[in-house]
Amino acid sequence: MKRLAAALLGLCLSGLVAAHSFQLGAIHIGHPWSRAMPAASPTGGVYLSLQNQGKTEDRLLSASTPRAESAELHTHINDNGVMRMRKVEGGVALAPGQTVKFAPGSYHVMLMGLKQPLNKGDHFPLTLKFDKAGSVTVDVVVQDGGEADSHSH
């Protein structure tokens, strides 16, 4: 019975970790996560969702973390049939009522010059700076990624 209770508690807690979110004014930040990377990888990515619950446009301007030398907003573009990653200049616009998903193959926060490996189960802070809402520090959870879809430059 104790093992069953412990297992149920573990499932409940893992659901909470998987569903963590943050609020900054009208901006809802859903489940910031990063994929576990090989120890030698100098880069990583952070994914999340941004929902503007307000009545005016806002813009994600930048991101920073002590976990990497730099963090940049990136996206993927189709360059004559070849998908390429590019730095987003001017930030990511969030129209009223809009949700923007940062996901593999789309927008993401590119971490460059990792100061330590991204290992499954790790957590690290990421500060997001918005044009109108201001800044907020969120907790990024490192999840298992899988070899076939690993994120790298």
Rank of each mutant, 00 (worst) to 15 (best):
T99Y: 01
P117V: 04
T127E: 08
K87Q: 07
A36Y: 01
L11G: 12
G10I: 02
H123C: 07
A68C: 07
R67L: 13
I29T: 11
K120G: 07
V141H: 14
G97E: 06
L94H: 03
M112S: 14
L4W: 08
N119C: 02
H123F: 11
T56W: 04
W33K: 04
L128S: 13
H151N: 09
Y47D: 03
K101T: 00
Q116T: 13
E89C: 02
P38I: 04
V138A: 05
R84H: 12
R3C: 06
G54I: 15
G30N: 09
S49L: 10
K132E: 00
H74K: 05
A6I: 10
M112A: 09
N78I: 00
E89D: 10
R86V: 14
K87G: 00
M37R: 09
L11C: 13
A40Y: 08
K115L: 04
V92Y: 04
P125K: 10
K87M: 05
M112P: 00
V88G: 05
W33A: 06
A71T: 01
M85V: 13
T99K: 13
K2G: 07
L61Y: 07
G44H: 01
E147P: 00
M85P: 02
D79C: 03
H31E: 06
S70Q: 13
G15Y: 03
K129T: 15
H151I: 11
F102Q: 01
E72H: 00
N119P: 00
H108R: 08
G90V: 05
S14F: 11
K132T: 02
V138T: 06
N52K: 09
L60W: 03
H151E: 13
M83W: 06
E57K: 02
S41N: 13
